[in-house]
């Protein structure tokens, strides 16, 4: 009889704690993940805006990369072609004629890269337009990394050379790429 008095509450505690184990939900942990909501923060977002006047650790490196044209190479052109296809073709089109699918659906037509003004422009002009936008084109600063902007500029130059019919063996185009 006395054993039962001890055993029954013990069993009850054991069962209760075992059931509590079932409720402990590891699937939803009390932590903030990408895009989760956080009532304590602005706009209920876990992702926070950096305080005004602060720079992230890579900001200076990104800034430096913008002013530092990389040496042209086949790998860089390939990278540029890939990034161009992702970010630019919807409007500028595969060949840079300004006939992308979004333009076909009514977006204002951008100029072809073979326009004299653009043939004469420096590669840094392309980088600058990607960074800050131009006319109705939004800035792509947050979507295309600085090194990739130079790669795209190089690919745009390659498109221009391909369409203006200059011989690839001619040294002039090579200089044009580096300009």
């Amino acid at each position: 009889m006395r054993r039962a008095i001890i055993l029954r509450p013990a069993a009850a505690v054991l069962v209760a704690s075992a059931l509590a184990g079932c409720r402990e939900d590891m699937e939803v942990q009390p932590k903030l993940t990408a895009y989760s909501s956080a009532a304590a923060f602005d706009q209920n977002m876990a992702a926070r805006q950096p305080p005004t006047g602060t720079l992230d650790r890579e900001a200076l490196e990104r800034e430096a990369a913008l002013g530092r044209p990389p040496a042209p190479s086949e790998a860089l052109i390939r990278r540029g072609a890939e990034r161009y296809k992702i970010a630019c073709t919807p409007c500028h089109g595969e060949a840079g004629l300004g006939d992308g699918i979004v333009v076909q659906r009514g977006f204002p037509q951008p100029p072809a890269f073979t326009e004299p003004r653009l043939l004469a422009a420096d590669a840094s002009h392309v980088v600058d337009v990607i960074t800050h936008g131009w006319g109705v084109m939004y800035p792509y600063e947050n979507r295309v990394a600085p090194a990739d902007r130079w790669a795209i500029a190089l690919y745009v130059r390659a498109l221009q050379l391909a369409q203006t019919g200059k011989d690839a063996a001619d040294p002039a185009p090579a200089q044009a790429v580096q300009r």
């Binding site: 919807p90 979004v102 659906r105 009514g106 977006f107 204002p108 109705v136 939004y138 947050n142 979507r143």
Partner: peptide, 15 residues
């Protein structure tokens, strides 16, 4: 990444 609203508006500011 989910795109920020600016990405949608890149095209939808015009069409």
């Amino acid at each position: 990444d989910l795109p920020p609203t600016e990405t949608c508006m890149t095209c939808h500011s015009q069409i």
